[in-house]
Simulated scan of single mutants.
Amino acid sequence: MGYHTFDASRADKLERAERRFRFCSAEELRWALGADADATVADLGSGTGFFTDVVAPHVETCHAVDVQAAMHEYYREKGVPENVELVTSGVADLPFEDDALDGAFSTMTYHEFASDEALTELGRVLTESGRLAILDWSARGSGEAGPPVEERFSAAETTAALEDHGFAVEHAAERPETFLLVAIAQ
C-alpha cells in the first residue's frame, strides 16, 4: 500500500534540477517511456510538473495527474504547456477511458500510490503494449534522500506486483538509491 504524499508547501524543492536530474536524467526518462510524437501519456504524481515538462515537448498530449490540487496551482503559476492537461486524481481512480493512454510514467511517486487498485487501474487505461516507466526510491537505499526506507519498495517487489497485474517487465535496474522499471501492459 502506498504512503503519504509530498508536502505541497515544500513544492519549490521539486524544482531543483541539480537534485532531480541526479536520480533521473531527461534522456533516461524519455528512453524508458519510449513514447512516439503522437502519443498520449500520463505523469503519475506530477507534482510541480518538473518531469511533465521533460516529456511534454515530445508527445501529443501529456496528462499531469496529481492527487493534490495545490500542486496543480503551483504548476499553473509556473506555466503549463499547451499540450498538458492537469488532472486532479489518485492513480487508483483515473478519469480516463479504457485504453486511453499509450504510456505512463512515475518519477519518485510509485511509493505514494502503490496498491492493487492503482495497478489494476493502470492496466485498464493503458493500451495493449502501452509502456509504464517507474523510477522510484529503492528500499535498498540509504534513506539519505527521499522518503524513509520503510516506505519504499525494491525493484523486485515492484516487478512482482506489476507481473501479478498482467504487466511484462521489460527492464529492471536497481541502483544505489533508486530503481528503474519499464513494464508493458498485456
Score class of each variant (00 low, 15 high):
I184Q: 01
D164Y: 06
S138V: 07
L162S: 06
A118Q: 02
R10E: 14
G141E: 08
G146L: 03
L101F: 02
D66M: 10
L29A: 07
D36W: 05
S106H: 05
H72Q: 10
E73Y: 09
G45N: 03
F50A: 03
R19K: 14
E117R: 05
D93S: 15
E73G: 10
K13Y: 11
E144M: 05
L33Q: 06
G47R: 10
E85A: 14
E15H: 09
E85P: 02
F153E: 03
L132P: 02
I134F: 08
F6N: 05
L44H: 00
G123E: 02
E144T: 15
R124S: 11
D7G: 04
V67H: 07
H171T: 12
E121G: 04
L44C: 04
M1K: 06
W137E: 03
H4T: 11
S138Y: 07
G103H: 11
D93Q: 13
F50Q: 07
I184D: 01
P81W: 13
S154W: 08
S115L: 02
E150I: 09
G49M: 06
P81A: 13
D36A: 15
R20S: 06
A64H: 06
T61G: 09
E170N: 08
S25N: 12
L14S: 07
F23E: 13
F105D: 03
E27T: 07
G166A: 11
H171C: 11
L33M: 07
A32W: 13
C24L: 15
Q186R: 03
S142V: 11
T88G: 11
A37I: 08
F51C: 12
V41Y: 00
G47A: 13
E73P: 06
Q68Y: 08
S9G: 13
L181K: 02
R131E: 10
C62A: 15
A35Y: 00
A118N: 01
A161I: 00
I184M: 06
V125C: 00
D66I: 08
G141R: 11
S138W: 09
F23R: 04
V84Q: 02
G47I: 12
T88S: 13
H63M: 06
L122D: 11
S142G: 14
E73D: 15
E77T: 10
D98M: 00
D38C: 10
A42W: 01
V54D: 05
T88A: 12
C24A: 12
F105N: 01
R19M: 10
V65T: 02
R30I: 14
E163P: 12
A11Q: 08
S142D: 10
H63P: 00
